[in-house]
């Protein structure tokens, strides 16, 4: 499989670099300071392929912090906040789109 660093990068809008934290798998984003944050708001947002590649290369330098970094689209909301650019990334930010079994009491409301 081709390394993400060797793949041709297409950037058509704002993007970030995201990965999963090694120790617990939590979703993390690459910051401008070269660290990882669990808040999308902290992510470095770039808009060109060279900048995205540089961000990705930095993310690959140490693989004891985060696993499987890749470039993901984002959009800027009306209030200027960064938001996920597609459904997959939104689910990574917000979690599953339904109540988890542990969130709800295990009762069956149905009549037999």
């Amino acid at each position: 499989m081709t390394s993400p660093l060797q793949q041709k990068i297409k950037v058509t809008g704002p993007v970030v670099v995201t990965a999963n934290r090694l120790a617990d798998g939590a979703v993390v984003w690459r910051t401008a300071a070269g660290t990882w944050s669990t808040a999308l708001a902290d992510a470095a947002v770039v808009t060109t392929a060279p900048d995205a590649l540089a961000l990705l290369e930095g993310a690959h330098e140490r693989d004891t912090d985060a696993v499987g970094p890749y470039i993901a689209p984002v959009v800027k909301g009306a209030d200027g906040r960064i938001e996920p650019g597609n459904r997959r990334e939104r689910i990574r930010v917000e979690g599953p789109t339904f109540a988890l079994p542990s969130d709800t009491p295990p009762t069956d409301p149905l009549p037999a």
Partner: peptide, 28 residues
């Protein structure tokens, strides 16, 4: 060894998979 950096992800991934451990969207 993975957490310490002695094993890279490329080295560790086949080992974790042999024990049923995947990395999914939000977590392992």
């Amino acid at each position: 060894r993975r957490l310490s950096g002695a094993l890279s992800e490329d080295e560790f991934k086949p080992l974790r998979l042999m024990n049923g451990v995947y990395l999914q969207l939000h977590a392992y």
